[in-house]
């Protein structure tokens, strides 16, 4: 399968502080990837390396086969970037910014941009700096769509958007990406939105990749089990094999695992913990994310 992004043994330090440790990651063509991770897990560092604004201490990150920190102009033309905070040339007006960008991209599709701008109901002479964050997000999205890139990298697209604009953003993105078979790599703090749009999830833990798998496989294969047993409290530990994470609240025990109910029961039995009633509780992606990464 063709890889649009390929990061190999990516390691990065800020001074003496290790932020990424031997990260390996690949993104296949035509799929939508959502990268999730708690603050300080190296998500922004990964995105900055991927966007070419940070040179990794060691390892390499290839985008369309070129090192991300020295992409050729021809390759940059194939990548639509949405920077955190919907960064835009806010000293320009709606018309000026379109006029500016259109001269850089030979396949410029102005209709995509003007369709979105038409929905804003603002004058073409409206300055971007006088727009709300939501309105600015539409301008930036319109510019990316018009650019017609093969790969879209959207860094925290939901930041500062109210639910209405978030839904609008997702609707347009879904429509555009599915119709045109684009590859998308996105991050967001609003996991329920990510759940609606992504094919694959990448979850980052401390300095490393915790998991990369299709969303469907994660939802079907990752389980949450609950039971009550005072004796179990403190006697079950998370490991890489059976129990991914465990939480105790009074006598309530919550286990997160990729294993089946029978495997968990057998595991508990091997620990000398007898459980009469154990239930599997369905999870949203957000709950699965917390289950994988922990609440703290």
């Amino acid at each position: 399968m063709e890889h649009v992004i390929e990061c190999k043994n990516l390691t990065h330090y800020y001074g003496d502080k290790l932020v990424l440790n031997d990260l390996n990651l690949s993104v296949e063509k035509g799929r939508i990837f959502g990268i999730l991770g708690k603050n300080g897990m190296g998500k922004t560092t990964t995105i900055n390396i991927l966007m070419g604004f940070l040179r990794p201490t060691s390892g390499q990150c290839l985008v369309f086969g070129e090192e991300s920190h020295k992409l050729s102009p021809a390759t940059r033309q194939k990548i639509g970037l949405l920077h955190e905070g919907h960064l835009a040339y806010d000293f320009m007006t709606i018309r000026q910014v379109e006029n500016f960008y259109s001269r850089f991209f030979p396949n410029w599709k102005a209709d995509y941009y003007w369709d979105l701008m038409g929905k804003l109901g603002l004058s073409d002479n409206h300055k971007i700096k006088n727009m709300s964050c939501g309105q600015r997000s539409q301008v930036v999205l319109g510019l990316i769509f018009a650019q017609d890139p093969e790969l879209l990298i959207l860094d925290d697209y939901s930041m500062g958007l109210d639910p209405g604009y978030r839904a609008l953003f997702i609707d347009y993105l879904q429509e555009y990406v599915r119709e045109k078979n684009k590859t998308v790599f996105l991050t967001s703090h609003i996991i329920q939105d990510v759940e609606k749009v992504v094919d694959d999830t990448i979850i980052m833990g401390h300095q490393k990749l915790l998991l990369k798998m299709p969303l469907v496989a994660l939802k079907e294969g990752f389980h949450r089990y609950e039971f009550r047993n005072q004796n179990a409290v403190g006697h079950i530990a998370a490991d890489d094999k059976t129990v991914t994470n465990v939480e105790f609240v009074n006598d309530k025990v919550t286990l997160y695992s990729f294993k089946s109910m029978n495997d968990i029961k057998a595991h508990l039995k091997s620990l000398g913990i007898s459980v009469s009633e154990i239930a599997e509780i369905p999870m949203t992606l957000e709950e699965a994310f917390i289950g994988l990464t922990g609440k703290y």
Binding site: M51, G52, P73, A74, I79, H83, L87, Y89
Partner: peptide
């Protein structure tokens, strides 16, 4: 100053030009 405010220079650096 507008280019460096909020790291807007990143927009320019992503333009398909040397």
């Amino acid at each position: 100053v507008p280019e460096m405010t909020r790291n807007r220079m990143r927009l320019s650096y992503h333009l398909p030009i040397n």
